[in-house]
């Protein structure tokens, strides 16, 4: 049994229009996404703005209303309102993109980190403070700073405070939505290293949502590429980077700047070829609405959205 299983997830947003402001259309932010996750691994979800990657993450944790589909956590359907249990909300936590706006500026670090504890566990003041200090120690923020406010910390420290809050309840799954894209390179390194460390310590599973393929490659065991609400390709990190099959995946990979200046000309040439191929084969890889087809397995680990062989 898979640790987390998402079946045909759809999230549609209504489009209001007309004189009476009625729903005239839907934006299919997430349009039939299915995947499985195993415990202790890191899953990358990559896409450009508007691809629906963040909406997918938010829908799993319940921050967006699901139009249809199922999310099974440890075999239990958590989209079913009746069985929506506290355990799930404890086991799945989220880390947000912007360390500057995701922490309430008027709350002290103690209150921020203790908030989930207060919701789920009855602790005495003393126990609570001790736990918060332990958590801060785990994320390498000085435990003495529990009475400070978010603005007194740097970007990297804030992001780690966000992580401390997320791991307070010893979750099993963490959904990290662009956790480092607002950070400088050296701070990014710090947060990424740290996420890997606590993963080992706590046997965490990550759903790592990002637009940065370099970071995803570094972090993830398994990567999914999303385009306009659908998956176009899914596979192990090796599958995606060494044997990309879908033209959109190829295009994304070709767009990554190469850090070796000597490869420059080669990289430009490659990018141009892929761009040409993208133009020529667009109709082959996408349906008449410009959307991806359903995923088909091409190996044990690798799935690609290809047209049905007719």
């Amino acid at each position: 049994m898979a640790f987390l299983e998402v079946k045909d997830l759809q999230v549609y947003f209504p489009v209001k229009g007309g004189i009476f402001n009625r729903t005239v259309d839907h934006i299919k932010a997430v349009d039939g996404v299915s995947f499985e996750m195993e415990q202790g691994k890191t899953y990358g979800l990559v896409g450009e703005s508007g691809s629906g990657k963040s909406t997918t993450g938010r829908a799993i944790i319940g921050l967006e209303e699901i139009t249809s589909g199922q999310v099974l956590f440890d075999g239990k359907d958590i989209t079913d309102k009746k069985t929506k249990n506290k355990a799930f909300r404890k086991d799945v936590q989220m880390i947000f993109q912007d360390p500057y706006s995701s922490l309430n500026p008027r709350k002290r670090v103690l209150d921020i980190v203790a908030e989930p504890l207060r919701n789920f566990e009855k602790l005495s003041k003393f126990e609570e403070r001790k736990r918060v200090q332990e958590l801060l120690d785990i994320v390498n923020v000085s435990p003495d700073s529990i009475f400070k406010y978010p603005h007194e910390f740097s970007g990297g420290q804030r992001q780690r405070i966000g992580v401390a809050r997320a791991i307070a309840l010893k979750p099993k799954l963490i959904i990290a939505d662009e956790p480092v894209s607002a950070l400088d390179v050296s701070v990014q390194a710090q947060v990424l290293n740290f996420l890997q460390e606590i993963q080992k310590e706590l046997n965490l599973t990550y759903l790592f949502i990002s637009h940065d393929l370099g970071v995803v490659k570094h972090m993830c065991d398994n990567i999914s590429i999303m385009y306009k609400g659908r998956y176009v390709e899914q596979g192990s990190t090796k599958d995606i980077f060494e044997n990309p099959q879908h033209i959109y995946t190829k295009r994304l990979i070709a767009a990554i700047p190469d850090i070796n200046p000597r490869n420059r000309e080669k990289q430009f040439e490659f990018r141009k070829e892929v761009a040409d191929e993208y133009r020529k084969s667009f109709n082959h890889y996408f349906d008449s609405n410009g959307l991806a087809f359903a995923l088909q397995s091409i190996s044990d680990t690798h799935k690609v959205a290809l047209p049905e062989k007719g």
């Binding site: 050296s186 990014q188 390194a189 990424l192 290293n193 370099g214 970071v215 490659k217 570094h218 850090i259």
Partner: peptide, 13 residues
């Protein structure tokens, strides 16, 4: 500190 090929841990300043 930039993630590149074959790197296990990123350098932190």
């Amino acid at each position: 500190s930039v993630p590149t090929e074959g790197q296990d841990r990123l350098h932190v300043i």
